[in-house]
Structure formats: structure tokens, C-alpha cells
Amino acid sequence: MTPTRDSSAPPGEGSAAAQLLPMRASLEFDDFYAANVRSVTAQIYAYTGDRAEAEDLVAEAFCRALARWRKVREYENPTAWVRRVAWNLATSHLRRRSVVQRFLNRQRETHEQAPDGDRVDLQRALAGIGAHHRKAVILRYMAGLTVAEIAEQEGVAEATVRSWLTRGKAALAGRLTVQDDMEQR
């Protein structure tokens, strides 16, 4: 693999039609953004459990996509690119946050609110399972990725993803059952 500095002008550069290219690319990005931002944000929200944080992380991912939009738009799957960036940002962010959280947990008791519906049950159950398992389940069932696609995004073997999914689903089911039992009492 050898690098190439992309200094050549795109076809038609200098012509009147070429003057419209940036505007066209901009509109194209806006369409791309509108089509994907909510679903990607929802996935990251499910992963981090913090809506504002998810919105910030996804905005950053789309900023990076826009900054190199001329390249990204040519990719076979620009959505996969921006989703991967968003997930990587979220993973890094969660890792930093977990260090702080571990410290805070030692300093104070936490008072969690009771769930007020199925959505909150699922969200709370997700928050209680391991990060890898949570990520795999969200990518599979919210993003609709196949095992192979998750493996590619995460850079792991498909067997690893299958293991994450099996364990993640079992852990989620266990937590949802426990919550149901507690509410019935």
C-alpha cells in the first residue's frame, strides 16, 4: 500500500460546472447527515446511557466525516465509516469516564431511580452488562449489523462476536427477569 497526496484537481475543475461541486457535496453531506444522525445517536445513547454525551460524540464523528467528505463519500459505505468513528469515540470516552466513575463510586452512595417502563428496563439492563457485550447487542439489534459486519468494525473474530452476543443476551435476559421479579413483589 503506498500513499498518494491528493493534490490533483478533480475532473472539470475550473469549469463553471465545477464551481457547483462544493455546494453539491455540501447538500449531499446534509442528506447523509439527515439520513443517519438519529439512528447512530440512538445507538451511542444506548451504549453510553447519556443522551447529551451521545449527541456530542456523534456530532464529532460527523464533523470528521465532513472534514474529509470528498474521500468519505467515495467509500463503499460512508455510514459504516461514520458509525465506526462514533463508536470508537464512545469507547474511548467511556474508558475515561469509567476511571472517574470508579473513583466517585468509592466516594458516595448512588441512588438510582426506579424504572418507569419497558424502554427504561432495557436501558438499565444494557447499562449493567459488559461493554463488549453491550456493544455487540446494540450493533446487532439496533444497527442491524451482521456478525461479520460487527467483527469487521471491532477488528475481532466472528467467533468472538458470537460469544459476546450469546453472553450479552443471556445477561440482559437475566437482568430483565430480576427487574420483573422485583416489580411484582
Binding site: 439527515a34 438519529r38 439512528s39 445517536t41 440512538a42 443522551r51 456530532a59 424502554r119 436501558q123 439489534y141
Partner: peptide
């Protein structure tokens, strides 16, 4: 089914910035 419902609700809940902000 559970995740489809969850995803739908979450997509309605989130409030992403306008693309003009990204630009």
C-alpha cells in the same frame, strides 16, 4: 421486537444538532 421498539423511541428522544452546526 424489544430492540426495535427501543431504537424507535431512542431515535425520537435524541436531539442532534442541525447540519449547519456541523458545517
Amino acid at each position: 421486537e424489544a430492540f426495535a421498539e427501543f431504537a424507535h423511541t431512542a431515535e425520537l428522544m435524541v436531539d442532534p444538532v442541525d447540519s449547519a452546526v456541523i458545517h
